[in-house]
């Protein structure tokens, strides 16, 4: 099972022939992801990485039956690429691009709303179901197969969490990098819900950062849903000052509720096992599962 992507996913790459697209498509193919082709307007009919290139997403879908896309298109054209994918009937749209204007994302999000599409990102590392499909830019070898789902706003912090989970003797069912922008397709709660309903996921790691209310919303949902699986939470940015943007466009403390402390408190109140230190994500998961922790 797993969620969003698996070995049966037929993946296309938008921005296929660009340098980023080429590099990561190659990496995904080496990982074993079923990459069936790519889209670069104007290069349709050619081959790239031994796979067909199409002018439009629609052409790609008609020819290959693709149902997942990964977008590496530059920021000025990325929102357009998202809408094109949705229009062509792609079900899972994973957008890696960083730096898309907020206004463009608002348009794209509104456009895809009633089209039964799942958008992951933008500004995210992608999604990986270890051993089946990597649709993203993460180092695949860090993610060993297992039954812990990961949801995270941050790229390298996702790798860190996966590494600790693996070193704790566990493994990953699916890891979803939801992205660090102010407007993203799948907020924390929706990603957690997917993993909560996944029979191959036993527990969930939820990693957030300062800014916004996604983690609080997810925490409340988890409790309302009956805390069906153990959830370990961590929020980065306890030491970040208010009003300063910390790298991610979304990572800025605006009010009292979006500090790391407030989010951790809300998580605790809703039955989530909070890791106080980013070095304790793995050990906190072991405790949450009732297993012994080796110091």
């Amino acid at each position: 099972m797993s969620v969003l992507v698996n070995k049966n996913s037929k993946v296309i790459v938008q921005g296929f022939t660009g340098s980023e697209g080429t590099f990561h498509a190659q990496q995904m193919i080496e990982y074993g992801t079923n990459v069936v082709g790519g889209v670069t307007p104007g290069k349709g009919g050619t081959k790239h990485l031994e796979r067909p290139v199409f002018n439009t997403v629609q052409d790609a879908v008609e020819a290959t039956g693709a149902n997942v896309t990964i977008i590496f298109v530059p920021p000025a054209f990325a929102a357009d690429a998202i809408m094109e994918a949705a229009d062509a009937g792609i079900q899972v749209i994973i957008t890696i691009t960083e730096g898309i204007p907020v206004k463009d994302m608002m348009t794209a999000k509104t456009y895809i709303k009633d089209r039964g599409v799942t958008l992951i990102g933008p500004n995210c590392p992608g999604v990986i179901t270890p051993g089946e499909a990597k649709v993203g830019i993460m180092p695949g070898f860090v993610f060993k197969t297992g039954r812990i789902g990961i949801v995270s706003k941050s790229g390298t912090l996702t790798y860190e969490a996966a590494d600790q989970i693996v070193k704790a003797g566990l493994g990953v069912s699916t890891a979803i990098g939801i992205g660090g922008d102010p407007i993203i397709g799948t907020p924390t709660k929706d990603a957690v819900e997917l993993l909560m309903n996944d029979p191959e996921t036993d527990a969930i790691v939820m990693i957030g950062e300062i800014g916004g209310n996604y983690e609080a919303e997810a925490a409340k949902w988890i409790k309302a849903n009956g805390n069906k699986k153990p959830v370990v939470g961590f929020i980065a940015g306890k030491t970040a000052p208010a009003g300063r943007r910390m790298g991610h466009a979304g990572a800025i403390i605006g009010g009292a509720d979006d500090t790391a402390e407030a989010k951790m408190r809300i998580m605790r109140e809703n039955g989530i096992h909070v890791a106080e230190s980013p070095a304790e994500i793995g050990s906190t998961m072991l405790k949450a599962l009732g297993k012994t922790v080796n110091a």
Partner: peptide, 24 residues
Amino acid sequence: VNGAGLAMATMDIIKLSGGEPANF
């Protein structure tokens, strides 16, 4: 640090280790 989230987490680790982060 590489990555914004990990950079913030690293600042937090510095604090937990008895220091104060000088930067992001």
